[in-house]
């Protein structure tokens, strides 16, 4: 009888762990609060991260450049984000950026941050910047950073595309 209780408790703990973990597997796309953009489609995000779009067309008549934020190191969040959004690995997306530099389309490779905190700080201090972090970081966002909807979905919704 005691054994059954222990099993039940273990299952509850396991399920709680899974559900908590799932909550934190969403990736949120963030921009500076001064940026009037509130939502992007996955296709728009792909064109931004493949550097096919280099300006915020809706900001100052397209005069504001998009400043991409990247990570120095590989991680599950980084690989998952680029695979979902662009279909490319982190290394291949970097090659795309170098290719765009070599044809003059962009001027430099995106800013590389070591940690998600660095990304948040970078976004907070650059009006045209865009980046992504794990949703678990959302409590650490300052006022100068906001989360974008993707395909008009909030990251808490079940059909949010960056899960």
């Amino acid at each position: 009888m005691k054994n059954i209780k222990i099993y039940r408790i273990m299952i509850v703990i396991f399920l709680a762990f899974i559900s908590t973990n799932n909550l934190y597997t969403q990736i949120v796309v963030i921009v500076n609060s001064k940026n009037p953009v509130t939502s992007l489609t996955l296709e728009e995000l792909e064109r931004i991260y493949t550097a096919n779009v280099v300006r915020w067309e809706s900001v100052n008549d397209g005069e504001e450049y998009i400043t991409l934020s990247d990570y120095k190191n590989k991680s599950d969040v980084v690989e998952r984000f680029f695979k979902t959004v662009t279909g490319l690995s982190h290394l291949k997306i970097r090659l795309e950026w170098i290719g765009k530099m070599l044809t003059g389309e962009i001027q430099h490779v995106p800013n590389k941050s070591a940690t998600e905190k660095d990304v948040i700080e970078f976004i907070a201090s650059n009006k045209g910047a865009i980046g992504f972090v794990n949703a678990s970081m959302i409590n650490e966002f300052p006022e100068s950073v906001k989360v974008l909807k993707i395909n008009e979905k909030n990251y808490t919704e079940s059909d949010y595309p960056l899960r």
């Binding site: 504001e64 450049y65 530099m101 070599l102 001027q107 430099h108 650059n126 045209g128």
Partner: peptide, 12 residues
């Protein structure tokens, strides 16, 4: 300029 360096120099 606001976001971009005035000139970037790179190569290979």
């Amino acid at each position: 300029l606001s976001q971009e360096k005035p000139i970037s120099i790179y190569g290979y």
